[in-house]
Amino acid sequence: MEEIKNIIESLLLVAGEPLTIDHINNILTQSGKKEIRNALSELSKEYEARKGGFFLREVAGGYQIRTRPEYREWIKRLIQPKALRLSKAALETLAIIAYKQPIIRSDIEYVRGVNCGGILRMLLERRLIRILGKKEIPGRPLIYATTKQFLEVFDLKDLKDLPTPEEIITLGEASSEHMG
C-alpha cells in the first residue's frame, strides 16, 4: 500500500494533465482500482494534514497536484500566465453553454438577448468550448459544447460538478455587479 501510494505520487508529479484512475491502473498493472482510489485519498489526506504549498485536486475526470490558491501571487512572480480574465459577458456565455450543452448559437443568444459571435470565437480560441458538429435543421447551425480544458480551468471534476445556480429569491442578492 505504502509503495503504491509513492508510485502514484511520483506519477502525479510528472504527469502533464490530470491522471485518470484508468490511466494509473494501466501503469500499475498489479493493483486494482480500489487500491488506487484508496492511495489517492491517502495522499490527499496527507497533503491536507501537511498544509504545504500544494494539494491534490480531482479535475476533468482525473487527479492533479495543484498549488494552493493562497500562493497565487508568488507563482505569478515566477511565471507570467496569460491573463485568463473573462468579461462578464464571456462568463455568462460560457455558463449558458456549460449548463445547456449541446447548444446552438441562436439558443445562446436568446438567453442573453445579445449577439455573441465575437465571444464564441474568443472562447473557441481559448479552447474553453468546441464545435461538436452541425444541427440537422435549416441552416445547419454549429453545435457548441465545453471542453476538457474548461473543466480543468474551472476546477471541476466533471459537468455534474457544475455549481447549482441559486434559485431566484431576491434579486438584490442574485446579481451582484462585479466579479473577478
Binding site: E92, Y99, L162, P163, P165, I168
Partner: peptide
C-alpha cells in the same frame, strides 16, 4: 445563468 457565471 448570471448566478451560475458568478459562481464559476
Amino acid at each position: 445563468i448570471k448566478s451560475a457565471a458568478e459562481k464559476l
